[in-house]
Design a protein around this nucleic acid. Sequence first.
DNA 1: CTACCAGCTTAACATACATCAAGCATTAGT
DNA 2: ACTAATGCTTGATGTATGTTAAGCTGGTAG
Lengths: 190, 190
Amino acid sequence: MYSQILDHISRDISLTPSEKEEFTGILSEKKILKKELLILPGDKVNSEYYVVKGCLKAYYRDHTGEDHIIQFAIEDWWISDFEAFFQENPAELYVEAIEDSVLLKLDKAALELLYRRIPKFERFFRLKITNAFVALRTRILSSLQKTGKERYLEFCRTYPQIEKRVPNYHIANYLGLKPESLSRIRKELT
Amino acid sequence: MYSQILDHISRDISLTPSEKEEFTGILSEKKILKKELLILPGDKVNSEYYVVKGCLKAYYRDHTGEDHIIQFAIEDWWISDFEAFFQENPAELYVEAIEDSVLLKLDKAALELLYRRIPKFERFFRLKITNAFVALRTRILSSLQKTGKERYLEFCRTYPQIEKRVPNYHIANYLGLKPESLSRIRKELT
DNA sequence: CTACCAGCTTAACATACATCAAGCATTAGT
DNA sequence: ACTAATGCTTGATGTATGTTAAGCTGGTAG
């Protein structure tokens, strides 16, 4: 049941059996169906979620009512409204299942306690956020410097599993394009 | 000499006198003149820098030879090629002084040791990177969803000190615009 | 004082992408 | 099997921004 997430963590830090037990002790399973919302704006975000199985998106709805996908998450990824989670603000994002999904919920308060007891975990999550930070930096460069076509090709290279799995209009949205534009771009590429 | 950075850190974690001493013991002062480079691509990045006084930019030069500013830094900010610093890759960015500047250099190896001895510092830097992460997320949303005018206004609101201090063509570059376009935008606003 | 140069502006034209509107598959529900 | 919904494509037109080229201003070096 927990072997997947323990493997995932063991890629960055090594844990004794009792530390593993202590960690899995603060997790709880959460199932969510396609189109259901895990988080919506205004929520207090006490948890982040590890994806055991499935696919989700986190998106922001702007004042004109348009949605902007910030992040996808598939197996082995973490998802939440991290801004709200870290800074303890009300959520600004929706997090929604694109497929029926199985998640492990990790509670902030329990995580803070875990940091005190086993500082290695602070390290693990610092590494995770650091990687996320680097990925965001890359994405900013792309969005400022590259054309839609270049961004699409980069996306296909970086996240081939996601490109195969989610509808094109989601990818277009993530890339900051309209579906019609992505369609034309894809046409040029064939 | 170190009171500025100690105040800065004390906003997030509280330190005993001996912890302060231990921290300042691993810092070293670095002065850099306008137009000098602190980091350039290919460098091994062993340090991050706290800005005591001055103004710098971190930028990426793409394959076409165009520069893209990732980050400005003024007093009380941290700057480096964080991707290179965290992941121990060769630098991909230039970091250059826009004004004569005084920095405090913090060495990665010493910082790792400090983390072991005083885990509070791991907390401090996790908080810093988290804030940076949130700022990047906001910037991505802006770059994907907003017009140049909106991004410029947002920049002026968020970083008024920087807007006053650096040439417009730097700001245009940061916003992903050409100086001519920013000029048009500014004209419309008057 | 003069000449230069950095920083900013302006104008004419080009281009990538958005918008609007429609149509066409494929899949899923009844 | 029929219908509706979903996802994708296409065409005509509009708009924001890029490109190119030039000129203006204020400060600074000689």
